[in-house]
Amino acid sequence: MSTVDARLSVFKTYKLYVGGKFPRSESGRVYEVTDGKGNWLANAPLSSRKDARDAVVAARKAFGGWSGATAYNRGQILYRVAEMLEGRRDQFIAEVADAEGRSKSKATAQVDAAIDRWVWYAGWSDKVAQIAGGANPVAGPYFNLSAPEPTGVVAALAPQESSFLGLVSVIAPAVVTGNTVVVVASENSPLPALSLGEVLATSDLPGGVVNVLSGRTAEIAAPLAAHQDVSALDLAGADAGLAKELETAAADNLKRVLRPRAEDWSADPGTDRLLAFLETKTVWHPMGV
């Protein structure tokens, strides 16, 4: 018989985050996630192409409302995400330390940087139009204004090595401008990404704006790259061979593609990712009417 104070261990079932809900993979499959030394951490859902399809449907459905929200409102919501992350800081530090085999202090630095980055991007929501748009001088009695608009559903492959800071660095710049995102978590360390779903679900972010899938990157990325309803592709987490394949598939419906490059995720991110998933709308308006 067990002693009185012995508790049964309560394992967490990591699930996908799609359309504001936490489904298991449609396929019912899971795969083992281990830490750097090969110790089992948890089972994560092994998503199929149908999960990718469902995620795109959810993201497209959320696009109208999210892109139509005021920049101010989007900024507030993203700041709220940072607040929720702060509250779960310890959990993320533990998960990042396990996932990336880092010491606690290094993991803490990663998580803090990720939260700060989220805040930094949140601030861009009502400022990006000033740097990416403006009034164009034209030779006629017109105002000519260019304004950046979100491109649509962005399929993002999260960086493989930086399981949390890298993940935040691809999600936040895409959603802050009004895009909706389907993100494929790091294949070997998806747990921080799946936990991020729980944070997003409790921070006023409308369901479907961010959808998190875990599994084999190549398996999920292929249908996403070929999907006619995906508007852009962020290949941060693809190796050279896979990236070429995906770019070819993405060319079919002229997706915007952000190609993989060597990135130091802890460095100042700049506005590259912010501006990568925008389209410019230019309007002519008669003067003096």
Binding site: R53, V56, A226, Q228, D229
Partner: peptide, 14 residues
Amino acid sequence: RQKLSTGRYSGPDY
């Protein structure tokens, strides 16, 4: 139908 003939998922734009 488009998915079956092309092998890739279609969208409401089509």
